[in-house]
Design a protein around this nucleic acid. Structure first.
Length: 354
DNA sequence: AGAGCCTTATACGGGGCACG
DNA sequence: CGTGCCCCGTATAAGGCTCT
């Protein structure tokens, strides 16, 4: 069983797991994060402990695009989550009781999971007729980064990390800022009081090796930033404490950057193949469109795709137009996307062993 | 095997207090 | 007032044991 390459998580779930802020009073109004993020009651019905956060992240790492995991071994999930199987069982029960998911126990050690209202709750996607709409967004997390998150052994560091990736998603990926900004007040708001001190926060931040963090303590610079950034202005409630963190996700862990790089590479590989074999057949008749390429790229990555394309290229150069009649490649001409999927899966499995 | 109950080391959470 | 530090009750994670 493979994890997803990119794990999609609703921002409201990340926020709920990190803990809601105690700051509810804003300059001219009250703002409760639960309402602001439209967090369903089921996410607030129990305490988010370290193991529970780890388990939800792990389940999302394995779940398909319908929020389903079929015939998973519970020790695979527990190992991935860095917890005991016992804790997994305990938490699954809590999750079930609170309506987060349904779990089917097939036989000892083998379970299936269906996340409840997957699109609405876990992806923040609301389908209205033909249009799909996200209210407070979702974040795509690179599987390598997810493993690092799960490996964090201090809950508060983990909470801080979850908040940080939401902020990077909002500030860098959506608003196209250079860096994401977290103010000290905000951090203090959702972390337990006893660890909301400057040094404690700095220590936690330095523990997050996948982030590039810089501290802004210069009040002049702070005020300048607030002046220039309208959304930041709304977030700062106490200008007398000019402290904030500028955060960047390292490129090697940034799901968005990785996705984009893979997509361009996959497109290029496909066009190269098209150019190479264009003389033997009408390549465009295969009707492999851009979206299918992107979807394959997101799921399997460019490296795996390259292997499959390479094999096809060799087969073409060997058999030329006769390839259409070969039994091994017949499917490529009849159902190209299905064929590619099949080959990608095989190549991925091979790479996992090697 | 799994549910339920008990146990235990450890981590968490939060109050208190002194200090600049 | 914010901060750093200490302390201690309790929640958590995970193992043991027993019953069905």
């Amino acid at each position: 069983m493979e994890t997803n390459r990119h794990i999609l998580v609703a921002n409201k779930l990340l926020v709920a797991m990190s803990g809601l802020t105690r700051w509810t009073k804003r300059a001219d109004h009250y703002r409760y994060e639960q309402h602001h993020y439209n967090i369903p009651a089921c996410f607030m019905a129990f305490k988010w402990t370290k193991s529970r956060i780890r388990h939800i992240l792990s389940i999302l790492a394995y779940a398909d695009d319908q929020g389903k995991i079929e015939f998973a071994e519970d020790n695979t999930l527990a190992d991935f989550a860095c917890t005991s199987v016992r804790s997994l069982h305990n938490n699954l029960k809590i999750f079930e009781q609170n309506g987060l998911m349904t779990v089917v126990r097939h036989f000892p050690g083998v379970i299936s999971i269906q996340l409840t209202d997957y699109l609405e709750n876990y992806r923040d996607l609301f389908v209205d007729g033909a249009t799909v709409d996200s209210k407070t967004g979702y974040t795509s997390v690179w599987h390598g980064l997810l493993s690092e998150l799960i490996a964090l052994d201090n809950v508060n560091t983990l909470r801080l990390a979850l908040r940080t990736i939401v902020q990077v998603e909002k500030d860098v990926h959506v608003q196209s800022n250079e860096q994401a900004i977290l103010t000290y007040d905000e951090i203090k708001g959702f972390l337990p009081k006893y660890c909301g001190h400057k040094l404690a926060i700095q220590k936690m931040m330095s523990g997050l090796t996948f982030l590039q963090v810089s501290l802004v303590e210069d009040s002049k610079r702070f005020l300048n930033m607030v002046k220039q950034n309208v959304s930041l202005k709304k977030r700062v409630q106490d200008v007398t404490r000019p402290l904030l963190l500028e955060v960047q996700l390292s490129a090697a862990q940034d799901s968005k950057q990785i996705k984009e790089k893979d997509r361009t590479e996959v497109q290029l590989l496909w066009f190269e193949l098209r150019k190479r074999v264009g003389e033997f057949l009408d390549f465009d008749a295969l009707k492999v469109n851009r979206d299918s390429l992107f979807s394959m790229s997101d799921t399997f990555g460019a490296k795996t795709f390259k292997q499959v394309v390479e094999e096809l290229k060799q087969a073409f150069l060997h058999h030329r137009e006769d390839l259409i009649h070969s039994s091994t490649h017949k499917l490529f001409f009849e159902e190209p996307i299905f064929y590619l999927h099949q080959q990608l899966k095989k190549a991925q499995a091979k790479m996992a062993i090697a």
